[in-house]
Design a protein around this nucleic acid. Structure first.
Length: 889
DNA sequence: GGTAAAAGACTTTTT
DNA sequence: GTCTTTTACC
């Protein structure tokens, strides 16, 4: 193993040198390697010595870079062990990226570090120490659908009017309680002291106090979760906090283990997560550090570094509390704040727009992003008559950029507020023959067939899991309907045991129809046999998946079906099989439980190809999913009052502020070119609505925008712009109206008039979804029959290895199902997605072959940009950026 | 208990 | 316009 130090020049590190796995050694980096190429603030943040550091990192300010360098700094300069570091992100993708960059920086030891999401870190803790809370091994993690199911079961039992109090809204309230660390005992004591969780036949009689209703369902929900040996998403955090608070020995262990805690996207933490950090760090544990400490040492609270940008807080709806970051300096003693305001991503024009929009938010700390990149091109605006036309224009602009300017499809992204907006855009791209990938929508692991298969696995692993067991009782159909279920359930409730227990003792149930008894026995035997198989092969999850798919009849039922949608379901199941095989291959100590965990904690954004991969496709996603990403060209669509900002946020200042931050996030995703579009008429759930321009458009200084079409046809006629008599304006596309300021009637006041006009509108002309093939939006078999040739080589990239987890990427291409072996992505790459604008002279990079190098020259030739790198002993090389196997450090 | 047709709800954003 | 849930009938 090669160690780098101050006097070694760059040394070759040949990853293939040893067949035997060794204890990976830490690559020690010199101070100059870690901060030599950083700006003053970045460098200060990397080196800061102190117990609490807040890095206020504006969009594109090199946040991840600072974070990874700081970790390397702590290791090499503070003398910390890799095992003493806990780095937390929100998404798996961010965690994977950080780990990857750390590996490049400090070597393979990074693979073993705690670099993970809040949720998976907590799972890890709970798996190890959850026994103290009564969690048995193999506990289930309920996703929101499972939780909703459970709430619905409870609410129905309690005779709650689920039309009025939907399971979702009840669950939302429960989630709020949890995020605030308000326990069910407290709620029960306050609002329903007479209720005992688990007691039968309790009826909520009076509805004059909704708090009582919530308190009771909350308590019962928690009770059932405990019975089922299950936790929900929020519990992962909450129960870990509980563990640390109530079990000093456990808390002690982690407090002395993690001496440095780093949290990314701190503005998105909720109260529970905030407390978790405090507990883990031992801020309130009362230990005092050695007075002369220059590092976290062994005693006293761990050193906490948080990185965030309050202007990018967009998850308040999920409980994120912006005060966590705003109050950091008061919350953590002797906290230091360092602001990173230099942006390395976008042009000044784009930043000016972002700054202008965000400045309309009240009560924020002023912050101004700036860049050395230069002014760049103006923002391009377009006002369409309707959503379809907007989509067609976006598609044509993408085609033009690709053809005329050589912009790679993968360098362009279309963003929108809500998933529902993707439809018309998708259609336009299909019609234009443009390759795309859509992120989000119905997630892979939320599909029915996948959830069914996972329910079997979960029930095998954790028989007490009532929700999953009951889910599969009659899936596939085996003649065990509501009646059979209720017989078993009744017995279970009488005896206060689980559904599983009741099933095991079904012989004692009286008055059971023979047919039902037969069916139940068959089901029980099936589960028993699969369970035996699983026990015998517990570290071969892919074999267990295969067994379940075959024995359960899930696969058979779908294969027999004539419904074309079921065909794609079969494919999805086979993909699940591949994912399991992949997991098994990549995980040394693979278990069924471990596999289920990976399926439980995935997000849409995890589905995105990371950095250096060129998907060859335009990316479409919601603004929320886009956070943390960047693209040379960004289309921000649907800038209308009611669409964006969303209608539900128009009346509330706080919510409107969040929408504005979302706009800020969207704008700052763009590196070179930003497009903003809107539609005058947009159909939502079948109805065409007339939409006013988004107020955010008005907040962008007019001189920054080059309007290709400023007003729509109908607006011009109404406002008398041009000649009233003429039918001017109905012609679309190349209408380069360059009129003076246009803020007349239609741009006047937004507030109250929104949504009042219901245009009979001209929608529909652009064709309805006639050719959407099978109604399934799953995409895997999406219109495979039509003209696949048009889509170039993108099929080769279809669903590559890293793309089998979570979320959906739909493309027009059928994923080639060749056994599930993953192809090495690198060999397929034609374009690594790197951008010349991201490099500056003096940057360090690693090359797959030559190792570490320093950038000495850059030639911006668009797609053919050349980067010149000094690799020390290997000489100075000129490389074509787009194909160079390099990574920026 | 299973199937098909009809009604109804739904859209923010997600770990 | 789509997806889920309810209802009517076999």
């Amino acid at each position: 193993m090669v160690v780098r130090n101050a006097h070694n020049d760059v040394t070759e590190w040949d990853g293939e040198e040893s067949g035997v796995e060794q204890e990976p050694e830490l690559i020690a980096r010199t101070a100059d390697e870690l901060v030599g190429d950083l700006n003053k603030q970045q460098s200060e943040a990397v080196q800061y010595r102190g117990a609490a550091l807040l890095i206020g990192a504006g969009a594109g300010s090199g946040k991840t870079r600072v974070l990874t360098r700081r970790i390397a700094w702590i290791l090499s300069q503070f003398g910390a062990w890799p095992s003493q570091i806990l780095a937390i992100t929100f998404t798996n993708k961010a965690a994977a990226e950080m780990r990857e960059r750390l590996t490049a920086l400090i070597g393979p030891v990074a693979q073993r570090m705690w670099v993970s999401t809040f949720h998976s870190a907590c799972v890890r803790i709970l798996r190890r120490d959850g026994k103290a809370l009564g969690l048995k091994s193999g506990f289930s993690i309920y996703d929101s659908a499972d939780s909703e199911r459970l709430v619905k079961i409870i609410a129905t039992e309690f005779n709650v009017d689920v039309k009025r109090y939907t399971p979702r809204s009840i669950l939302g309230r429960i989630s709020d309680y949890k995020n605030q660390l308000i326990g069910w005992r407290a709620q029960l004591a306050a609002y329903a002291p007479d209720f005992k969780p688990g007691s039968r036949n309790y009826r909520i009689s009076k509805f004059d106090n909704v708090e009582e209703l919530y308190a009771i369902i909350y308590a019962e929900y928690e009770h059932r979760l405990a019975m089922a040996n299950a936790v929900d998403f929020d519990d992962l955090i909450v129960r870990t906090v509980e563990l640390l608070r109530d079990h000093p020995d456990v808390a002690d262990y982690y407090r002395h283990k993690f001496r440095y805690i780093l949290v990314d996207e701190y503005q998105d933490t909720n109260h529970a997560q905030y407390v978790l950090i405090r507990e883990l760090a031992g801020v309130d544990a009362g230990e005092t550090p050695a007075p002369t400490a220059t590092a976290a040492g062994r005693q006293g609270p761990a050193w906490v570094t948080v990185v965030g940008d309050s202007d990018q807080s967009i998850y308040a709806f999920r409980g994120a509390d912006i005060r966590n970051i705003q109050d950091f300096e008061e919350d953590f003693p002797n906290a230091k704040t360092i602001l990173l305001e230099q942006n390395y991503r976008s042009t000044q024009t784009i930043l000016d727009a972002a700054n202008a929009v965000i400045s309309h938010n009240e009560g924020r700390k002023p912050k101004k992003l700036w860049t050395a990149v230069g002014k760049g091109e103006p923002i391009v605006g377009y006002a369409a008559d309707n959503a379809q036309q907007e989509a067609v224009w976006v598609a044509s602009e993408i085609a033009r950029l690709h053809a005329e300017d050589g912009v790679a499809y993968s360098d362009m992204a279309i963003m929108y507020r809500a998933n529902a907006q993707s439809r018309s855009l998708e259609e336009a791209l299909i019609n234009a023959g443009l390759p795309y990938q859509l992120i989000g929508g119905t997630k892979f692991y939320e599909r029915k067939e996948i959830k069914d298969a996972l329910a079997y696995l979960q029930a095998i692993l954790n028989p007490a899991d009532d929700v999953n067991l009951r889910r599969i009782l009659n899936v596939p159909k085996r003649g065990l309907g509501a009646r059979a279920e209720s017989i078993v359930l009744e017995y279970a409730r009488e005896r206060g045991t689980s559904f599983f227990d009741a099933l095991m003792h079904m012989e004692q149930i009286e008055d059971m129809p023979t047919r039902t008894a037969k069916g139940l026995k068959a089901f029980r035997d099936l589960m028993a046999s699969m369970s035996a198989f699983a026990r015998a092969n517990i570290n071969k999850p892919s074999d267990i998946v295969a067994e379940v798919l075959a024995k359960s009849g899930l696969l058979e039922e779908l294969q027999k079906s004539v419904d074309p949608q079921d065909q794609s379901r079969v494919e999805n199941l086979s993909q699940l099989q591949s994912t399991a095989a992949e997991y098994e291959q990549n995980t040394p100590d693979a278990t069924l439980g471990g596999f289920l965990e990976t399926t439980a904690l995935v997000a849409d954004s995890d589905q995105l190809p990371n950095g250096n991969e060129d998907s060859g496709k335009v990316t479409m996603m919601t603004l929320h999913t886009a956070k943390g990403l960047e693209y040379p060209v960004v289309f921000l669509t649907g800038l209308e009052q009611g669409t964006f900002p969303h209608s539900r946020s128009l009346e509330d200042t706080a919510e409107l502020s969040e929408e504005r931050r979302l706009a800020y996030v969207g704008i700052t995703r763009a590196k070179r070119r930003l497009y903003i579009t809107r539609a005058a008429v947009r159909a939502q759930w079948g109805q065409a609505n007339e939409m006013l321009p988004s107020q955010f458009l008005e907040e962008i200084p007019d001189e920054l925008i080059d309007w290709k079409r400023r007003e729509t046809g109908s607006e011009r006629m109404r406002t008398g712009w041009g000649d009233g008599d003429e039918f001017g304006g109905w012609d679309d596309e190349d209408d380069f109206s360059s009129g003076p300021t246009f803020g007349t009637a239609s741009y006047g006041s937004y507030g109250s008039s929104h949504g009042s006009a219901y245009g009979s509108g001209s929608t529909g002309r652009w064709g309805s979804a006639a050719h959407r093939s099978n109604g399934s939006r799953s995409g895997s078999t999406y219109g495979s029959g039509r003209s696949s040739g048009t889509y170039g080589s993108s099929s080769r990239y279809g669903s590559h290895s890293s793309g089998t987890r979570g979320g959906r990427i739909s493309t027009r291409h059928v994923t080639p199902k060749s056994g599930g072996t993953s192809m090495p992505v690198s060999s397929l790459q034609k374009d690594n997605g790197l951008n010349i604008g991201d490099f500056s002279i003096g940057d360090y990079v690693t090359h797959d072959q030559y190792g570490l190098g320093k950038v000495v020259d850059l030639q911006d030739k668009g797609r053919n940009s050349v980067i010149t790198i000094d690799f020390g002993s290997d000489g100075v090389k000129r490389l074509m950026l787009r194909v160079a196997p390099i990574e920026k450090l």
